[in-house]
Design a protein around this nucleic acid. Structure first.
Length: 600
RNA sequence: GCACCGUUGGUCCAGUGGUAGGACAUUAGCUUCCCAAGCUAAUAGCCCGGGUUCAAUUCCCGGACGGUGCACCA
């Protein structure tokens, strides 16, 4: 879709533009203008309605700055860290760790230090892949995609701007599970900005350094929780599975969610459920379904923990762009935070029936172990406890032999069996602590906005004149309606138009008022920003006996009907909520105009 | 980050070693009963820094930003 023309319209009409223009501009940052901000907000609100409200989920707002420890746990500190080496000859930057992996036996050079990689480049005479000149002696620089900052004065507390909103949910899981009364499944959503210090931002809204994500973290018990798949089983989806992408003549698989899950094309029922929900949502906000598909991640691009992963993709300007990701993340995230964090990232899962189990326990007499083993006493006690769980038989003799320490420091100690206070107890277990699995639908809001604009951009002819309009869905359009007096040389029209605009605003609608220029010019202004309905006050509407009426013009067809002022707010509200303009045509008089609309 | 190309009113463009012109848009007035009409007037611009020069928007160097290709893209 005319990318240049759309970018020009976006700038001129106030959808979005490069930020900080007065200071030369800042690559990777965009400001949403009045129209764009309204559109984006409406998209977010539609997402909120579908993925939070209608799913019975809850939304939170976490900070955008988080301490370093969070990202050590999440893996972003290492995983987002690229080692770059620049060729002194041709200036080409390459991934130093990848070059070393190709030249040596190392499979995970990324885990090495920069200095170690520099040494390996030297030892193995690694050369620039572009020009072949040796890279020995060049500095290996770490480039982390996360924006770093300091929390508080000094540099003792490093922090980072979050590279995804998800961590704000994972980190707070121990408390969030309390709000869910400790029971699975439950879902937490968040809409907000995330930050990545991209090496080279490109393509307008497509790759930014600050962008908005809408994410849902669905926490489930993998053994028992099933999605309500029947709700979306009949939803048509266009799938582009990994095997088709690998094939030379790979084709789409047009199927339904239910079938794709049943035949295993979609590996996870939960992922399948959200693909269905997402597909319906995208259609609702105005994505052209002929330019939409779900693409499965290839084995190589999938994170190792992700069992199945699909992207929603839309076609914009001839390219397919990722606009959402759907991942079955297993227990990866919560386990990581469980290892690094202080709190319990588990939920207690109650058994159907309490289980009675025999458990070997020890209760070492520390007043004996202390004097005997000194500083090793605690380690000996721990070893006894471990041994009891592993080999209760070891406690049958007079003494027990335990080993403490590891490797060369390992020591063996003899402990009097009485001191260990070994016992086998019968205990009742009501359940166990399990780490929930996570299903994560993650949406790019800016990319959705870009898609909607590209798919809504239309040209046609009205009355022989070419026009450009945005066929945005009323639910997401920046304005709900515009109100005009047909002409300004009649005060009665101006007064009524002003009153109608005020009334509509009081009714909660977002309304533009315009009395500048000819009526045709005003229609075109609104067409270009996607306002779905224009209300015009004319003389026919105020003369005669009946109630005051105005005309309502539908954007795409330019068709008009005459509606009483008193019913206007309710009708527009219905249209905004998805009502059909045709239903107005059936109940109200059409306005005869000579205007002809020709689709290009 | 590298390479090539570009940057002139709000937008899209023309042009020049002596500080600029158009179209569209905008504003005001006139006109106007339904789709960018017309008339009059007004507002508004050479990306930033350095160099060469009597003089730089123009030439040179560097930077920023944008486009394209490469690299990168949890």
């Amino acid at each position: 879709m005319a990318g240049g023309a759309l970018a020009e319209l976006a700038k001129r009409r106030g959808f979005f533009f490069g930020a900080n223009g007065a200071y030369g501009g800042t690559a990777g940052f965009y400001t949403f203008g009045p129209q764009g901000a309204a559109l984006k907000r409406n998209v977010e609100e539609a997402w909120r309605d579908r993925f939070t409200r209608k799913e019975g989920n809850r939304e939170i707002e976490a900070p955008t700055v988080m301490p370093e420890a969070v990202f050590e746990a999440s893996g972003h500190l290492d995983g987002f860290d690229d080692m770059l080496v620049e060729c002194g000859e041709c200036g080409e930057s390459s991934r130093a760790d990848h070059l070393v992996e190709d030249a040596t036996d190392f499979e995970d050079a990324e885990s090495l230090s920069g200095g170690a990689v520099e040494d390996l480049i030297h030892e193995h005479d690694v050369a620039c892949p572009s020009c072949g000149v040796a890279l020995a002696g060049r500095d290996v620089e770490n480039f982390n995609l996360m924006f770093a900052t300091d929390i508080g004065p000094g540099d003792a507390h490093p922090g980072y701007l979050r590279p995804e909103t998800a961590q704000g949910i994972f980190v707070e899981f121990p408390r969030l599970k309390e709000y869910a009364r400790g029971s699975l499944p439950f879902g937490i959503t968040q809409i907000g900005p995330a930050y990545r210090n991209e090496i080279s931002p490109r393509g307008g809204l497509l790759r930014l350094r600050e962008f908005t994500q809408a994410e849902l973290e669905q926490f489930i018990d993998p053994e028992t929780d099933e999605p309500p798949l029947d709700r979306v089983a009949d939803v048509d989806v266009r799938l582009y599975p990994a095997d088709e992408q690998a094939a030379a003549d790979g084709e789409y698989r047009d199927t339904t969610v239910g079938e794709a899950v049943a035949d295993g094309t979609i590996g996870s029922a939960w992922v399948g459920y959200y693909l269905g929900v997402a597909r319906e949502w995208y259609e609702r906000v105005g994505v052209d379904m002929d330019r939409f598909r779900f693409r499965q991640h290839l084995a190589g691009e999938r994170a190792h923990y992700a069992a199945d992963c699909w992207d929603a993709e839309s076609e914009v300007g001839g390219d397919w762009i990722e606009i959402a990701g759907f991942a079955y993340r297993g227990d990866y995230d919560l386990s990581k935070h469980g290892e690094h964090g202080d709190d319990a990232f588990t939920v207690f899962k109650r058994y159907d029936e309490p289980k009675t189990v025999e458990r070997a326990t020890v209760d070492p007499d520390m007043s004996v172990l202390g004097p005997e083993f000194g500083g090793d006493a605690a380690a000996v006690a721990d070893a006894l406890e471990t041994l009891a769980g592993r080999d209760p038989g070891a406690f049958e003799g007079e003494t027990v032999t335990v080993e403490i320490g590891e490797g060369d420091d390992a020591e063996t100690h003899e402990v009097d069996a009485d001191v260990a206070n070994f016992a086998v107890e019968e205990t009742t277990e009501n359940g166990e602590h399990i780490t929930p699995h996570v299903v994560e639908p993650s949406f790019g809001v800016g990319r959705t906005v870009q898609t909607l604009l590209a798919h809504a951009y239309e040209t046609d002819e009205v009355d022989g004149e070419e026009r450009t309009y945005l066929a945005l869905e009323p639910e997401v359009a920046p304005r709900d309606a515009a109100v005009f007096p047909l002409v300004t040389n009649d005060d009665r029209l101006v007064e009524l138009a002003t009153r109608v605009a005020d009334d509509l605003r009081a009714a909660g609608l977002s309304v533009a008022y315009d009395d500048s220029g000819s009526i045709g010019r005003r229609y075109r202004r609104q067409d270009e920003v996607g306002t779905p309905f224009c209300v015009t006050v004319d003389r026919d509407g105020i003369e005669g006996d009946g109630p005051e009426t105005v005309t309502v013009r539908e954007r795409d067809s330019a068709a008009q009907v005459r509606v009483p002022v008193g019913e206007l707010a309710a009708e527009l509200a219905t249209l905004r909520a998805g009502g059909e303009f045709v239903s107005l045509s059936e109940r109200y008089d059409s306005v005869e105009t000579d205007v002809e609309t020709t689709t290009n």
